[in-house]
């Protein structure tokens, strides 16, 4: 009995360790690569799992110097990286803010207001949740060209908002539905308008939902690759993921530099996992199909 219990515990801890190793191993390796010297990293057979002389030189190189690792355009890697970080931050923040605002408004309407065509409009919106952007891509590209929105941050933000909206409106709608009606009605009786009631009474209660929408939207835009790949072509709007893909490009890959750039890309997602897990997981799970 005690033996079988001992065995069970051992198996359990082995399994737990395997799970940790499998999840973290690849990330660990990238981090190690990014702080290793070239000589250590390219030792064959490799044995520096813990770098003997850790260095930040790769980060400094990739953010300050020249054309060593570039493939896109004829710009130095530093220029590309800076513009990538800047574009990704701006696009993700703007799209997340806009989505939070619009999803609150529409979510409130669907959750609390009666209007003709409500179920029909709701259904027409939900129909788009699992719709891949692929099926509208070609005409969308032409439309964006006509509007002069190709390779602009504004264009990308509009696309992320339009294609994210169905999911986030649905999400906000469930959060708002869960807030108690009576305080809102008290505010309405006191003469507040619907929008005022939404802002001062409903949203504060539904705040966790709003935070969740904002963070999931931010993460989704930050991680996106296909949309920016297609709708951008210069450092005007290219996101960090696109910049990274350019580095993989031609000729030799300088893995230690690439790793440093990749680690930078991984910072916001890892922060989300560490500190905002409870806000992000549900929204991300529901948005999985997109």
């Amino acid at each position: 009995m005690t033996l079988s219990r001992f065995l069970r515990r051992t198996v359990f801890w082995l399994a737990a360790a395997a799970l940790a190793l499998w999840s973290l191993g690849p990330v660990y390796w990238i981090v190690v690569s990014s702080i290793s010297t070239r000589i250590e990293l390219y030792t064959v057979p490799y044995k520096h799992w813990i770098p003997q002389s850790p260095t930040l030189q790769n980060y400094i190189d990739v953010f300050t110097t020249g054309p060593k690792y570039r493939a896109g355009g004829f710009l130095p890697s530093a220029t590309l990286l800076y513009s990538g970080v800047r574009n990704s931050v701006i696009e993700a923040l703007l799209a997340a803010a806009l989505l939070s605002l619009l999803a609150s408004l529409a979510g409130y309407a669907f959750a609390r207001l009666n209007f003709r065509g409500r179920s029909f409009l709701f259904f027409m919106m939900l129909l788009l949740v699992p719709l891949p952007i692929w099926v509208s891509l070609i005409a969308l590209f032409q439309l964006m060209s006509v509007l002069g929105l190709i390779d602009t941050k504004l264009g990308l933000v509009l696309l992320f908002v339009a294609y994210g909206a169905p999911l986030y409106v649905w999400l906000m709608q469930t959060y708002i539905r869960a807030t108690p009606r009576d305080i809102e009605e008290a505010a309405l009786i006191d003469g507040a308008s619907r929008f005022r009631a939404l802002r001062t009474v409903v949203l504060p209660v539904a705040l966790p939902g709003l935070v969740s929408v904002f963070l999931v939207a931010f993460l989704t835009v930050w991680n996106a690759f296909l949309i920016p790949l297609i709708f951008t072509n210069s450092e005007n709007a290219q996101s960090l993921t696109v910049v990274l893909s350019l580095f993989i490009g031609q000729y030799e890959v300088a893995w230690e530099a690439m790793s440093a750039a990749a680690v930078v890309t991984m910072i916001p997602p890892v922060v989300m996992a560490l500190f905002f897990q409870r806000y992000v997981v549900r929204g991300l799970a529901l948005g999985a199909v997109q």
Partner: peptide, 14 residues
């Protein structure tokens, strides 16, 4: 749990 969620949070491209 946090460790196991990290891979999902990262950009698939990365």
């Amino acid at each position: 749990r946090t460790i196991a969620i990290v891979p999902w949070m990262l950009p698939p491209l990365v």
